[in-house]
C-alpha cells in the first residue's frame, strides 16, 4: 500500500486514490518509425529491480498525472515530479544519488 505525494496538489495520497500508468519517459514513435522503434516504444520494458521512473495519476484527487522515482525492490520513493518533462529533473537525480551512489541514469 504505497503512498505518494502529488506534486500538483500536495496531497500525500494512498495507493487507492491513485492509478498507476507504467514506465515514465517513454518516447512516442508514430507513423514513419521502424518496426523495431515501434516495438520498443509499445512493448519493451526493462522491468528493473531498483530505481524506476513511473507514471501515476491522482485519479481520486486533482486528476493530474505525475511521475515518481521509486525503488521497485525496497519501495523507497526518491521523489515525485511533474509529468511535463521528458527526463527526470536534476533534484530527483540528486535525491537518488544521495541514497544510491552507484546508480546512474542510463
Amino acid at each position: 500500500m504505497l503512498t505518494f505525494t502529488c506534486p500538483y496538489c500536495g496531497v500525500t495520497a494512498c495507493e487507492t486514490e491513485l492509478s498507476p500508468g507504467g514506465e515514465a519517459h517513454l518516447k512516442r514513435f508514430g507513423p514513419g518509425s521502424s518496426d523495431e522503434q515501434f516495438e520498443e516504444y509499445l512493448f519493451l520494458r526493462p522491468n528493473v529491480k531498483g530505481v524506476h521512473f513511473e507514471r501515476w495519476r491522482h485519479a481520486m484527487g486533482c486528476g493530474k498525472w505525475f511521475l515518481a522515482a521509486r525503488d521497485t525492490a525496497t519501495l523507497e520513493v526518491f521523489g515525485t515530479y511533474s509529468a511535463q518533462t521528458t527526463e527526470p529533473p536534476a533534484d530527483i537525480i540528486a535525491a537518488i544519488r544521495a541514497k544510491r551512489p552507484d546508480w546512474s541514469l542510463t
Binding site: 492509478s19 486528476g63 498525472w65 509529468a83
Partner: peptide, 13 residues
Amino acid sequence: HAHMEDWLQCEWW
C-alpha cells in the same frame, strides 16, 4: 476522459 488527459498532460502538454 482519463485517456484524453493522459495524452494532454504527459505527451502534448
